[in-house]
Design a protein around this nucleic acid. Structure first.
Lengths: 267, 267
DNA sequence: ACAAAAGTGTTTATTGTACACCCATGC
DNA sequence: GCATGGGTGTACAATAAACACTTTTGT
């Protein structure tokens, strides 16, 4: 860094501490860009970046989303998606992945970017640009960690509209759900939400919940089984019914084979 | 801002100017966050944000994309999407819109966010998080402005893969095209690329180019016309053929009506 | 009159939808 | 033996795909 540009920065600080813009609000963030840069980004001002994750989990007959109580004013007590800031040495995808891992302890979770929210006043206290992701996780193994250590709560997606969410988190949730709804029809991602072994009923319940409408029992299983992506196991589910339902599992290897032959998943 | 936090910042500057991290590279950007903040974003570091626009235009029988020659090392001479930085008082959507307007002079252009690229090293000289958008414009009125004032060039989408593009612009282009391909099938956005009046052949050529495969002439017009969204005009196209093809225009009002009745566009 | 593109219908194949009864098992 | 959810097939409707000849008009 040149002496000139360093001097310039110090002068700017002195200037800013005197300006009313800064003094009226002691939470302001100060940012400088070294104007001696020869690059096209010289003189540009940087902004805060964060990620928020819509963590989906499925149990019972409904898709759920993980929310926590927000701790800071002016949205104290509102519900919020799990998020975190993007650090200078961290890819945004990793920031999202780390957020999910920190909260659930799960690694290798299926995640996808949804949308970036960048309106100036979306967070009243500061300019923050937030990229929204969704994550699909298998609920069972994570439940204890979530409730005890973080006070996070699974909400059925049908109830979310009635909750008070912070900032633009309602839109984030809507966009994430919309994207999941669309994608689940042409990519076999629904299985990420189920345990390794699942019954046809569980799978159908999952799809019904995501799509928000009932699906015909016979037509559904016909369609799914015709794709030859499920392996019917010898094992049957116990406890839920007299007869017991066969378990299935998703054949990832087979899917990759069919994919490379140009055959597509579709439901 | 408290005296304490101001003092802390000055001390940090002194510290940083001494550190080897900074002195080895005079293009570094210095960013501070006031640690006295009572907010959850206290202590976080901000980053540069930009937008890049995949500007699509249709003429002849192929979809084109607007690119310009990059002026800065180490990608001098490579092709690049049109972009700009996001300013602190500017919504990211507006940053994208302004980029398109600055270059084409067009306002009210149809735009959509595609994806945010946020890997640490995607831009070698600086950490920049870039949100990609696509824009659909009608080519005719803009052609002169583009070529004379900005040296931008329309490239047919089938040629883009053979060009050298800066950074991760190849991926941006791919994602944008993929999203357009998908969306054009369930939203009547193709018309944004055509003039007010167009022939059935022009519309079909457009869809063929976007989808990348030939479409049956009769089936296509049957399907489009059955949706009752096009108005057949009295006027015929002259010059391209002896007989002349009828012009059509898209009936936006009708589309809104049908939309509110739950009828969907689909092709 | 003819060249060149515009316009138009029918048949067949595929896919989606609706629907009801028997089966296996634990109690 | 009976109550409970599990599993299965067929008929009909709708949609998609394939396909070729006639019309118009400027030269």
């Amino acid at each position: 860094m040149s002496i000139l540009s360093f001097k310039c920065i110090v002068e700017n600080i002195l200037l800013m501490t005197r300006s009313s813009d800064i003094s009226k609000n002691d939470t302001s963030i100060i940012r400088f860009v070294d104007t001696a840069s020869p690059h096209y980004h010289a003189g540009e001002i940087s902004l805060l970046n964060s990620v928020d994750c819509v963590i989906f989990g499925f149990y019972g007959t409904e898709l759920h989303v993980l929310l926590h109580k927000f701790l800071y004013d002016p949205f104290k007590g509102y519900w919020a998606l799990l998020g975190g800031f993007v650090h200078p040495d961290e890819n945004i995808d990793d920031a999202a992945r780390n957020t999910v891992e920190r909260l659930t302890g799960l690694i290798n979770v299926y995640m996808e970017q949804v949308y970036t929210f960048g309106n100036v006043s979306r967070v009243p206290t500061e300019r923050v640009i937030t990229t929204c992701y969704y994550a699909l996780i298998e609920v069972e193994p994570t439940l204890p960690k979530l409730s005890h250590e973080y006070g996070a709560t699974w909400w059925p997606i049908s109830k979310v509209a009635q909750l008070d969410l912070v900032y633009d988190h309602p839109q984030m949730f809507e966009k994430a759900l919309e994207q999941l709804r669309r994608k689940v029809r042409y990519q076999p991602i629904g299985f990420e939400l189920l345990p390794e072994k699942f019954t046809m009923l569980e799978l159908r319940n999952l799809y019904e919940s995501i799509m928000g409408r009932p699906l015909d029992k016979r037509n559904f299983s016909k369609k799914i089984l015709n794709m030859n992506l499920l392996v019917k196991l010898k094992e049957k589910q116990k406890g839920t019914s007299r007869r017991g339902a066969y378990f299935f599992c998703f054949d990832e290897k087979r899917y990759q084979e069919l994919l490379s032959k140009g055959l597509l998943f579709e439901i």
